[in-house]
Design a protein around this nucleic acid. Structure first.
Length: 837
RNA sequence: GCGAGAGUGGCGAAACUGGCAGACGCACCAGACUUAGGAUCUGGCGCCGAAAGGCUUGGGGGUUCGAGUCCCCCCUCUCGCACCA
């Protein structure tokens, strides 16, 4: 690609022009725009590098400094890769659908369709001021019909694979946002957006079978180059548990002389069912002294003894009414006895069946075998209701001494089975295997793996999202909208506020709601729920390279060339939401044959959080950093560089208003160094050496995202170059401009052109360092006596122990510590000498 | 409770596979140039001490010639999950 010459330099005059960031930045932003400097040639570009950042939600408040922190970190890495010769694609878009936008629109009384474009304009303006190397020709917004058409297409692909289904079930309902939430959006029983306590409702909802992919989502993590903390968060969220399902046959009541449990309608008694429980500790089955069913368990009615029916119904009704918060956060155990018993298949003894809300219907089988001797929750419950507690595991060699009446013994490493007949003496692991094998032979158990992960509920009874592309026909049932008829446009509704009915506002738009069945043509009704925002963002990275294509979601050739994403940078708040969903959708599209990779992000790094003067930024505290204001005052270059300097990128840092001046001073000095540079004198050997060390250091630090130390190294070099009012030489300062360019792109461009270069600095190539110069010839070696540092000696880098000792003894200040002949000398070449006397 | 991460000067922070703790920057002090400027430059700046020297990486043990770094115990903070059997 040929590049036009840069604009004419400022006319030479006696008075060198001072550094005015505003002028410089305006000039180069205009230049980049006019010359398409940031537009990646996706078809022909060599060595593709897809530098992706998490797209922002375009809030009315404008760009948050946290956004800019993340984007700058990504931009530096991207610009560096470009200097390394890659074609770098750095796209940006807007995650503009969703409850957040809608609620804000309701609050200010402006329709989101009007508000969002305004916010986006403001975001774009702010982003452009930051000097990001964004390829604006591939901008996207999830609210654009040309985008959400394909979000609906993604839904249909899942539907076709049998991975989208509708189910009536207990769901999390936010009474404030008036919509259903995914489990991931409920934090400690409250809505993550508004903090309102979440209620339980029974609604028909669309779900994605992400649980079918749990094993693969978990296994793949081992091979991903991602932040370890993010991988751990995903592992925990998926929550694999290996165990067994065990059947406990319900005892026929009449054997015990009790009245028969009836089905309630006078039918003949049915054969007593079995209660299937899930456990990760089958080894403790001899200690299972009672069973517990979740209140919603389907067997509750059938097994409940007549004498206990009233209490049981009462308890079940109460727990259904109870909001999830009370149920999930109160640790107090409550329950009720059903009057029924089941046979423990290991002991063949009857044990009582209880109902308690500490057992969750959503997990496992909704029923457990309670082992109060070895599970804290069961223990607590057993003490509350006076149920028997039996020890069946004891620390090795301590079989008689174990006491589980005071507390459950839950250690799985040191224990051996006791009171467990033929299994006595086995370790926990051996016992688990042996018990399952024994019960399996009698068809009473089977090994099972369970995951905490739930299917992804994607229905939202709201307005501001992509309509789910399904039509209901009285004859044909649920019919997917044919792909050729996408998008199902979101109709303009003036009063889009949600109500308490559990039905989306879209149902109120009669004309839209009634449609023809795509299959039989008869009158039919549209699905009125919209999909979760997380579906919009679960595939956006596939769209960026292909934004020019209307007829396909993503072009095959471009996708093959540019994906998976080379480098993804974003916040760890999305560790389990967005990142897990994106991986899932990618796997599904791979399985459907649309793409040929099953992990979307080759490398992911989570950035840290910025606080201000030690405190978290928040609107209510009024301490939010407005990027505009700082860019105005200090310039985007200083602002960017400061953000990267204030702490390690992956940990975040503390934004202190005064700190930015140090970075600004550095840029000022760089400016003057170029202005004053001695163009004839050769580089000083020592400075030259330092330069090459700095080139190496910065080049090593950037890929590690150690931006703060890279900047420190450049400052150190600056100090060396200008030490003692020294005039830097042209050769010394010129490569520094290149090193600085990823951090402070505008000033770098300006200085580069001042140095007489006609191409953009970003096409100049990263400077190479001379390996022979990066090691100093003479080094300062530490001298310790008895492990205590007493001073240093200047020696050659390759000095031997004898040479170093000679230097030490020649130094009176050091020699005085050495009395007599050293007992021992520890010599670490090139580092230190430790003399033991 | 479980999981992850972190505790280093007045402050933000550096420190490779164990090898001069505090790089770089802010703030502060002194000085130069000049004079009212949020400019530039020089020097100083962990703590105690006049100095010699001693002490110092949340606390306590340990391994080692040598520990911010490795091991054990404890304390504090941040974030995530939260009855998942």
């Amino acid at each position: 690609m040929t590049r036009p010459a840069v604009p004419p330099q400022q006319p030479a005059s006696d008075e060198p022009a001072g550094y005015d960031p505003a002028t410089v930045e305006r000039k180069w932003q205009a230049y980049w725009q006019a010359h398409g400097s940031n537009v990646a040639d996706l078809e022909r570009g060599q060595r593709p590098f897809y530098a992706l950042m998490m797209f922002p939600y375009p809030s009315a408040e404008g760009l948050h400094v946290g956004n800019l922190f993340a984007f700058t970190g990504n931009d530096i890495y991207g610009r560096f890769q470009r200097l390394q010769g890659h074609t770098v694609f750095e796209p940006l878009g807007y995650d503009a659908f969703g409850i957040h936008s809608e609620n804000f629109a309701i609050k200010v009384g402006i329709h989101p369709a009007e508000l969002i474009p305004r916010n986006i304009d403001n975001f774009r303006r702010q982003l452009k001021r930051a000097g990001l190397m964004v390829d604006w020709s591939h901008e996207l917004s999830t609210t654009d019909p040309g985008y959400y058409k394909w979000t609906q297409w993604v839904f249909l692909q899942l539907y076709k694979q049998g991975l989208a289904y509708k189910k009536k079930g207990a769901v999390n309902w936010c009474p404030f946002d008036k919509t259903v939430l995914a489990n991931e959006q409920v934090i400690a029983g409250a809505c993550e957006r508004c903090g309102t306590l979440v209620e339980q409702r029974f609604l028909e909802q669309w779900f994605f079978r992400i649980t079918d992919y749990a094993g693969r989502l978990l296994a793949n993590l081992d091979h991903l180059d991602w932040s370890e903390s993010t991988k751990t968060a995903q592992r925990n969220w998926i929550g694999k548990s290996v165990g067994a399902e065990i059947s406990f046959p319900v005892v026929d009541m009449t054997v015990y002389g009790a009245s028969t449990a009836t089905s309630g309608n006078g039918d003949a008694p049915v054969a007593p069912p079995s209660v299937r429980v899930f456990t990760t500790r089958p080894d403790t089955i001899f200690g299972a002294t009672y069973l517990v069913l979740a209140p919603e368990h389907p067997l509750v009615d059938a097994i409940t003894h007549d004498d206990h029916r009233v209490e049981v119904r009462d308890y079940v009704a109460r727990s259904a009414k109870q909001d999830l918060v009370t149920r999930k956060t109160s640790k107090e155990k409550t329950g009720v006895f059903t009057g029924a018993y089941a046979t423990n298949p290991a002991t063949s003894r009857p044990i009582p069946i209880w109902i308690a809300d500490y057992v969750l219907m959503e997990y496992g089988t909704g029923a457990i075998m309670a082992v109060p001797g070895h599970d804290e929750r069961d223990h607590e419950f057993a003490r509350e209701y006076d149920l028997p507690i039996v020890a069946v595991v004891a620390p090795e060699g301590d079989a008689d001494a174990v006491n589980v009446t005071g507390a459950a013994y839950t250690d799985t490493d040191g224990g051996r089975l006791v009171n467990s007949q033929q299994f006595d003496g086995m370790t926990v692991a051996e016992g688990c295997a042996a018990v399952v094998a024994e019960l399996a032979a009698r068809h009473a158990a089977k090994p099972v793996v369970n995951y905490r992960l739930h299917d992804w509920c994607i229905s939202r009874q709201r307005y501001w999202g992509p309509p789910i592309p399904i039509v209901y026909c009285d004859d044909c049932g649920a019919v997917p909208v044919p792909e050729s008829e996408l998008p199902v446009l979101l109709p303009q509704i003036d009063d889009f506020r949600p109500d308490d009915s559990g039905v989306s506002p879209l149902a109120r738009h009669e004309e839209w709601y009634h449609t023809a069945c795509p299959q039989c043509g008869k009158r039919a009704r549209r699905e009125t729920d919209v999909s979760d925002t997380f579906l919009d963002s679960a595939w956006y990275f596939l769209r960026y390279p292909s934004t020019d294509f209307d007829d396909v979601p993503f072009d095959q050739a471009l996708t093959k060339k540019w994906l998976p994403v080379t480098s993804y940078i974003g916040g760890n708040e999305h560790a389990v939401l967005h990142l897990l969903y994106s991986r899932f959708v990618t796997m599904v599209l791979k399985d459907a044959g649309h793409i040929d990779f099953d992990e979307p992000f080759t490398r992911f790094r989570a950035h840290g959080m910025i606080v201000r003067e030690g405190a978290k930024m928040s609107k209510s505290r009024g301490n939010v950093v407005n990027p505009d204001q700082y860019i105005e005052e200090w310039g985007a270059d200083a602002f960017r560089t400061y953000l990267m300097f204030l702490g390690p990128f992956e940990e975040g840092g503390d934004f202190r208003d005064k700190g930015i001046s140090g970075v600004k001073r550095f840029l000022d000095r760089l400016w003057r160094s170029v202005q004053d540079a001695d163009r004839s004198a050769p580089a000083d050997p020592d400075v030259r050496r330092k330069l090459h060390q700095t080139i190496r250091k910065v080049g090593e630090d950037i890929p590690k995202l150690s931006y703060n130390t890279a900047i420190a190294a450049m400052m150190e070099y600056m100090n060396a170059m200008r030490a003692g009012e020294r005039t830097p030489r042209l050769e010394e300062v010129k490569p520094l401009v290149q090193l600085v360019s990823p951090f402070a792109p505008h000033i770098a461009e300006e200085l580069w052109s001042m140095l007489g270069e006609t191409k953009s600095v970003f096409d100049s190539g990263w400077p190479a360092y001379d390996a022979s110069l990066v090691e100093d010839e003479r080094i300062t070696m530490a001298v310790q006596v008895n492990g205590k540092t007493r001073g240093t000696v200047q020696v050659s880098r390759t000095a031997t122990q004898d040479e170093v000792m000679a230097a030490v003894m020649a130094d009176a200040g050091l020699a005085k510590f050495i009395t007599g002949t050293p007992k021992r000398v520890v010599f670490v070449p090139g580092r230190l000498v430790n003399i033991i006397v």
